[in-house]
Design a protein around this nucleic acid. Structure first.
Lengths: 289, 289
DNA sequence: AGAATTTTGATAAATTTATTTCAGAAGCTA
DNA sequence: TAGCTTCTGAAATAAATTTATCAAAATTCT
């Protein structure tokens, strides 16, 4: 019988490098919902992972088991042990170190997400996405000293999705130039979290005066920009750190990207294909295997 | 298929009175360490409970299953659901719109976080943070086309925490210049997620040759850089979107920032005060009220 | 680019596992 | 305790799963 100090999950991850392509594919499938998938018949596991039956048999042996039944037997032992002693081993959280900052931080972030999502009006969110998807209007994305990373993240994805797009860094003193061409009805997505920035507020004021629509991502205390904004989203950002967390805001941004992408499909498709071609040509990326 | 609101455990207990002596004996054995024992072969279950093989077969049918395999399949489904769900519990989710993309996306992200954290070795994480906190060595932060936003995020915070810090964009063709001064023992934090980038790999290779330590943030399929890396962290990044999610990786980065900050306190304090003063002087921020 | 090596999956063989059959044991009623 | 019913398990049968074999495909190396 195999070493009892390591779970099968651990061992699979350790060996991940020694595995072949099909075996790695299988390994990920096993870990995907561990341990349930490994407790079914070998053939089910194989077809779930889109590999052949012998591949499973071989990998199980590579992991040090005499055969699949022995592998399953140990999985069941693990499960038994875990049910008996739920805290001890690998409760999907980082290894039995309940007070590790990783765990405390993660708890805080999940809590933030849940709180934030609880306060968001799905209709307002959809409206904001519709505004961001309107290609008749120019879309401006504005971030501050730290938040410009989020702005950039949104910008990069929007670039593949729609034209008429500008990323303004409010920290740059060149920003007033960008506002010259703003038309009534143009859309601004602004990011402003605490240590709210004067430049962002000024920029928002000017944009507002010019008749632009403002969508604001801010924190639970809300940037002063929110008084001008048509739609604002407040994220909880407090974590056990001297700094604030942008994770929840990023989640909202990513969801917005996905939604806008759905709204503008068709167009997006062509743009993405064009992008792919460009990247292939510049050989910036490796082929994904 | 059977009723999905009741677990098999529930159903066994309900039927307990209608069972015969041998069956009751078996039932108790199943509940004894549930669900592990039910996931083994029928004959093992029979001998564990000191009943005959046909008794097991008969009882499983009494519980409403067509046969033992079907019974096991449902046990596995239960297990899958249970592993997935111990925390989730959607009460505070976005207003009664369970199928809204916001909710589906959030579910996916939380799932990704849990999965990712379950596979991280806290010790490796601490080691990586210690490396990133070592001010005797130069720290390089490297991102790719999309991931440079994460790299920038890390860079901005590290800037307040420690000196000897460089942000390299692997997409820029100026990056080879940055590597000229790399000393043995210098530390690289690299970001590379799928559509892995050739430039990042090359950069990592050169840095590795020069004797630098590499810390890698990648995805579940792992960038080829991971073979060179001293420590890697793989995040799950799949969400209901045409794009991947960076939220989990951001969570790790933020935790790393907090940890490094703790490790270097003292120094950091002075640096942060200096920064505050600078910002006050440039009147970039509003006073936080 | 071509040869050697490794990886992979279709198929067949072997083994294990589940189901059915049926005779005997246990419980119940009078 | 006889006679009936219900329950139980040994053994046989049927079905499935696992393991082994081998040729094709992919990869690596020269």
């Amino acid at each position: 019988m195999a070493d009892h100090t390591l779970t099968i999950s651990d061992r699979i991850q350790q060996k991940l490098d020694d595995l072949t392509r099909a075996e790695r594919q299988l390994a990920h499938s096993i870990l995907e919902n561990y341990p349930a998938s490994g407790l079914g018949p070998l053939s089910a596991l194989a077809s779930d992972a889109h590999v052949s039956v012998p591949t499973v048999a071989r990998m199980v042996q590579k992991l040090g088991f005499k055969g699949y039944p022995e592998f399953q037997a140990e999985l069941r032992e693990e499960l038994k042990a875990k049910v008996k002693n739920p805290i001890a081993k690998h409760d999907t959280w980082a290894d039995g170190a309940p007070e590790h900052l990783l765990n405390r931080f993660t708890d805080a972030v999940i809590d933030n997400i849940r709180h934030t999502l609880g306060q968001i009006d799905p209709q307002a969110f959809d409206d904001a996405c519709a505004m961001a998807a309107d290609t008749d209007k120019h879309l401006y994305v504005v971030g501050g000293r730290i938040t410009h990373t989020l702005a950039e993240y949104l910008f990069l994805h929007m670039q593949a999705i729609r034209p008429h797009l500008t990323h303004i860094q409010s920290t740059s003193n060149a920003w007033p130039h960008y506002l010259l061409d703003v038309q009534e009805g143009d859309v601004f997505v602004l990011f402003d979290v605490r240590r709210y920035e004067n430049n962002t507020l000024k920029l928002a004021e000017i944009a507002h005066e010019k008749g632009a629509k403002l969508i604001l991502f801010t924190d639970q205390w809300r940037s002063p920009v929110h008084q001008l904004a048509d739609i604002s989203f407040s994220s909880r950002i407090v974590v056990p750190s001297a700094w604030d967390s942008a994770a929840t805001t990023l989640l909202l941004v990513e969801t917005m990207i996905a939604t806008v992408q759905n709204l503008t499909w068709g167009d997006t498709k062509d743009r993405m294909e064009a992008l792919e071609t460009m990247f292939d040509q510049t050989r910036l990326f490796r082929k994904f295997t």
